[in-house]
Design a protein around this nucleic acid. Structure first.
Length: 484
RNA sequence: GACCCAUUCGUCUAGUGGUUAGGAUUCCGGCCUUUCACGCCGGCGACAGGGGUUCAAGUCCCCUAUGGGUCGCCA
């Protein structure tokens, strides 16, 4: 029997990274064993529906490479794959379940339910349905139905005993039936709840392994009771623990930047992001940390999933992203870096390709590029104290001296060849009996107006070209002379 | 509050009765160097606490603590 897993998001907007990780694990489980990955849209809550959210899900799955074999857009043998299009199925199934004795109609109003809960809360009791409609006679039920009273369908829980199931990650879990509430399966609006739809659909769609967040761990026995009532075989369960923002808070949509798209917009590469979230709560059993998607397919196994919640560490993501950036070819890096460079550098003459070779080893996330290159467009206001560097024993006075040595040499330097410039300056330092580092430090400050730059003085000269370099050099000399 | 689950360096983790408790990241040193970064080398840093079981416990059991989850006509 081939493995079938599913990703079943509700179309409520952004793709949270915890959600993405669940999708990744489900996809990996299927693909690592030659199985199928199914996308199902769980839109049973009409109030929470968000326009465009389904397309957004398609885009992310396509973008990350977690492609599905069956889904609303691709079809498949077990469709429709959108729950709002399966309403007749749930209706039929719920009626069947009532016949089977696994469920009953409940005509209680939300107001009555609230007050029951209120009373239970005051008394310090467990809050659960009080069974009011459980023993309605067939006549009473018919009367209510004839009166068109709205009703929900509730699952009838056994009163005693316990259900045990064996989770693939957490092991054996046992829940006493006495703690179970009679779940609502069908709402008054004719839509199923998750509690019902997931069971019906997972069964009908022949899902073999249910991968989902650990918040469902405790409800799983309720679902198994449903399977049992129908006479179906439950799937295997793979519950994965939460992704946390910090030790106390779960990563949540409300925290703002936990979304896939936000990370991409901040300049993270999708490969790095995916790699990182794979590692949050899973490991290959060895020391490897860098995985392509196909590496993951090869290495993935349920045994590597850990039980405890993992805190999302953006610092480590940054590092991983840097690793991915450094592995890019020069062309590939320039392609993704140039748009970021162009947000601040408008110059047509600056050598962007060369700039990129300098930037590549100095970039962890793309969004830090603009601040690194802003001096290229326009030299910032800077203090001549930048010429002071203790270790190199430089200061504005000898800085000026250095620039005056460099000025005629560079003026005469033809062609403006970067590879030749550095040895030329080294030689120039020797001739003038001055430390080459003094010359280079001053040159860098003169060209950039900054203490930290990608690359050194000759690198900057290469980026700017001769005319702009000489312009900056001369104006630096002017500036220093004025200060004297 | 009740129930379920978890707990190894700050963080992600390896570890399935006998290890100097390993790796990665962060941080700190050093080397390299045209500033910074990259790279390389090194360092700091953990078995939540208490009881058992055992010749031997991070590994098994119990209790406590802490944290998370669930208790919706949300999923």
């Amino acid at each position: 029997m081939t493995i079938r897993t599913r990703f079943a998001p509700s179309p409520t907007g952004q793709m949270h990274v915890g959600n993405l990780r669940t999708a990744l694990y489900a996809w990996l489980l299927a693909k690592s064993q030659g199985g199928a990955f199914i996308l199902r849209i769980e839109d049973t809550d009409q109030a929470r529906k968000v326009e465009g959210a389904v397309d957004f899900i398609y885009n992310i799955l396509a973008d990350t490479g977690l492609t599905h074999d069956e889904g609303p857009d691709k079809g498949g043998e077990y469709g429709p794959y959108t729950q709002s299009e399966r309403l007749p199925i749930y209706k039929e199934m719920s009626e069947k379940l009532i016949e089977l004795g696994g469920a009953y109609r409940c005509f209680c109003t939300p107001e009555r339910l609230d007050s029951v809960r209120e009373v239970q809360k005051e008394a310090g009791e467990q809050q659960k349905y009080d069974g009011h409609c459980l023993h309605l006679s067939p006549e009473e039920i018919q009367k209510n139905l004839d009166a068109n009273l709205p009703f929900v369908v509730r699952q009838k829980m056994p009163l005693d005993g316990a259900t045990t199931f064996d989770d693939e990650v957490f092991g054996e879990i046992t829940i006493e039936h006495s703690t179970l509430d009679d779940l609502i399966l069908m709402k008054t609006d004719g839509f199923p709840t998750y509690n019902f739809a997931n069971v019906v659909d997972d069964h009908l769609m022949k899902i073999t392994h249910v991968v989902r967040g650990s918040e469902y761990l405790i409800s799983t026995p309720k679902y198994n009771l449903l399977y049992q009532a129908f006479g179906w075989t439950p799937p295997k369960y793979v519950h994965v623990s939460a992704v946390m923002r910090d030790a106390k808070k779960k990563l949540s949509k409300r925290d703002g930047d936990a979304n896939y798209r936000d990370f991409i917009e901040k300049g993270y590469l999708k490969e790095a992001l995916l790699n990182y979230i794979a590692l949050l709560g899973w490991n290959a059993g060895d020391d490897r940390e860098k995985f392509t998607l196909s590496d993951l397919v090869e290495a993935f196994s349920i045994a590597g999933i850990s039980k405890s919640p993992a805190i999302f560490d953006e610092q480590k993501l940054r590092w991983l992203n840097g690793e991915y950036i450094r592995e890019l070819s020069a062309e590939a890096f320039q392609k993704i870096a140039e748009p970021w460079i162009r947000t601040v550098v408008k110059s047509k003459t600056a050598d962007v390709a060369y700039l990129c070779t300098l930037l590549q080893k100095r970039t962890e996330i793309l969004s830090e590029i603009p601040e690194k290159v802003d001096f290229i467009e326009e030299i910032p206001e800077y203090s001549v104290e930048l010429y002071t560097h203790k270790k190199m024993k430089t200061n504005p006075e000898n800085g000026l001296q250095s620039l005056k040595i460099l000025q005629p040499a560079l003026e005469a330097f033809e062609p403006w060849d970067h590879a030749e410039m550095y040895p030329m300056i080294v030689k120039l330092a020797e001739v003038n009996d001055i430390n080459k580092k003094k010359l280079l430090w001053s040159l860098r400050v003169a060209l950039s107006g900054k203490a930290l730059t990608p690359g050194g003085g000759t690198d900057l000269a290469a980026i700017f070209g001769k005319s702009e370099s000489m312009r900056r050099l001369n104006s630096a000399i002017d500036k220093l002379e004025k200060e004297e």
